[in-house]
Amino acid sequence: MSLLQDSLIELIRRTSAEIPDDVHQGIVQSLENEKKGTIAESALKIIERNIELAKQKSQPICQDTGSIIFYVECPVGFDQITFEETAREAVQLATKKGYLRQNSVDSLTGKNDGTNVGPGSPNIHFHQHRSAETSVSLVLKGGGCENVGAQYSLPNEKLKANRDLDGCRRVILDAVLQAQGKGCGPGILGVCIGGDRASGYEFSKQQFLRKIPDRNPNPELDKLEQDIVETANALGIGPMGFGGKTTLLGAKIGVANRLPASFFVSVSYMCWAFRRQGVEIAADGKINRWLY
C-alpha cells in the first residue's frame, strides 16, 4: 500500500465522517435561530447530535455516501494515471472499511458489485497549475440532494424569467421551492449562470469548494447570493421542510460564458450533510495539511 493510498483513504474517512467547520458553524447558528419547541428545532438538534456521533464513531454522517468526486490540483508533469489507479483502490478499500456505502450500481443490469468502482465512479477532475503543490479535494454528494438539482433554460415563460439577473433569481428561488423537504435542508446552493448543459452543472458543483462564509468577489453576484439566502429563509420552508427559519445556509454562484442561443442556469443543491474535505499532498504522498 502506498503512502498516497493511505492519504486518500484517510481523506475519504474524514470526508464521510466529519462535517467541515464552516458548514458546522452554519448549522449551529441555525439551531440557535430556530424557534424553541418546534419540530424544526428538534430536527436541528438531531442533526447536531448526528454530527457529533459520526465524528466520534468515525462512521458515515449519512448512509448515502454519495457520488465520489475528486478535484486534483497538480503541477505540470504529475502522473494522472497512477493517481487514478490509486484513487480507485482507495475507494474500494474505504468501502470495505464502511467509510463508503456499496453505492455504485450498473445502470443496465441493476447489479451492485459492492466495490464503488465502475464507469464514471469515482469521478476525478484534474487541473494543472504552475505551482509545485498537489492538492486533492473530495466531495461526497448524496443522491437525495442530487435529484433536486435543476437546470433552467431562459427565457422561462412560466416563471416569468428573462435573460437577466432577475430571471436568474426567479429560477434559483423556484429550485429552492421545489427542493423543499426532499433535499435534506437546510441546504447550500451551487449555481452556474451560463455554460452549456454539461459545463453548467459541472461548474455549479465546483462552487461547493468555496467556504460558506466567503463572499463573491463580483459585487453583482455577491448581492444575488445574499439575496437568495435571505429570501429563501423568509419562505418558512425550514429544516427538512418542516416549516421554520433556516432553509438555506448559503448560495454560491459562478458564471461561465454561453452561446448567443443558450442561457442556462444550473442549480446544484447540497444537503446539510455537506461532505467536503481536501488535503495538500507532499511529494512522498503523505498529507501535509488539511484544507477545510
Partner: peptide, 9 residues
Amino acid sequence: HAIGGAAQV
C-alpha cells in the same frame, strides 16, 4: 418523517 442524513442517531 425521519431526519434525513441523521444516519448515526
